[in-house]
């Protein structure tokens, strides 16, 4: 039964166009080249895990997609549209704010340090963008925010402020805040790294829930290897700015011959 189900999704995936494509993407900060030619396709509803040592460029990959950093060269295509370039008088020029907003509406992100808005209640954190960005009515936005907060188990905290929550609760709010925008792609930037060990579980539970029920594509930058194995369809190992290994969780996390990958994994098992 299970085998068949898995096969079915992969068949569908192969037919579908990728939702995100990276074409030879480079990124430098000053003299340091962090990404040295990334080529990558992400299919709709695909769950992708990015692993690798710090400084390997894995966070930069998703920050480029969220438009928090601009690539030095190369193209990122989202839903068939070039993210960082737009057409003007028949020529491709650097994207302006308007173009970026049009394309990045499909994308949501959860941060390592939550970045909740401290001057708003939990509910307001989750309704501000639907109301002002998506121009939804206050009632509708409120209804969906409450629904989402219930899903992450925080319905009783609606009128609290972020400063009154634990780290794990904050991160769950951050996920609800991203989910109410109904993104087609969700980016998770080391979302458990800033948490106390005993709070990691509740956050991973929510991600697992999103992964199981949503049609959302997910890119997880993570150090939780067991979790990556569980949730991801595909795992990418980044090293020194290139994708050094790529495949199913079994292929990458268990059967890889790549020496740097093995020494990296050993540190987590150690």
């Amino acid at each position: 039964m299970e085998e068949v189900a898995v096969k079915k999704t992969s068949e569908i995936e192969e037919k579908e166009d990728p939702i995100v494509v990276y074409k030879d993407v480079h990124k430098s900060f000053g003299d340091i080249e962090v990404l040295k030619g990334i080529n990558l396709e992400i299919k709709p509803a695909e769950k992708l895990a990015l692993i690798g040592p710090s400084g390997s460029g894995k966070t930069t990959i998703i920050r480029l997609l969220m438009t928090l950093e601009e690539p030095t060269s190369g193209d990122i295509i989202v839903n068939g549209k070039n993210l960082w370039k737009m057409e003007k008088n028949g020529k491709l020029v650097r994207a302006n704010e308007h173009h970026l907003r049009n394309v990045r509406g499909e994308i949501g992100m959860v941060f390592q340090h939550f970045n909740l808005f401290p001057h708003m209640t939990i509910l307001e954190n989750c309704t501000v963008a639907p109301i002002h960005v998506k121009k939804e009515s206050k009632e509708k936005a409120r209804e969906r925010a409450i629904e989402m907060l219930e899903r992450v188990g925080l319905k009783d905290k609606l009128h609290n402020y972020p400063s009154q929550l634990s780290g794990g609760q904050k991160q769950r709010v951050a996920m609800a805040r991203a989910l109410v925008m109904q993104p087609k792609i969700m980016l998770f930037d080391e979302v458990t790294s800033a948490l106390d060990p005993e709070l990691v579980g509740e956050v991973l539970e929510v991600i697992r829930d999103i992964a199981n029920t949503g049609k959302t594509a997910m890119v997880l930058v993570t150090h939780e290897m067991d979790f990556a194995k569980d949730v991801a369809d595909r795992v990418l190992f980044l090293d020194k700015g290139v994708i050094a290994e790529e495949g199913t969780p079994e292929e990458v996390l268990q059967n890889s011959k790549n020496e740097r990958l093995q020494s990296f994994l050993r540190r987590f098992r150690g």
Binding site: R104, G105, G108, F117, A129, V133
Partner: peptide, 18 residues
């Protein structure tokens, strides 16, 4: 104001003015 606040707002697709 921390840079993370701006980044979170960008991630929610807010305009510069918003």
């Amino acid at each position: 104001i921390s840079k993370g606040q701006t980044e979170a707002a960008i991630a929610l697709n807010m305009s510069k003015f918003q």
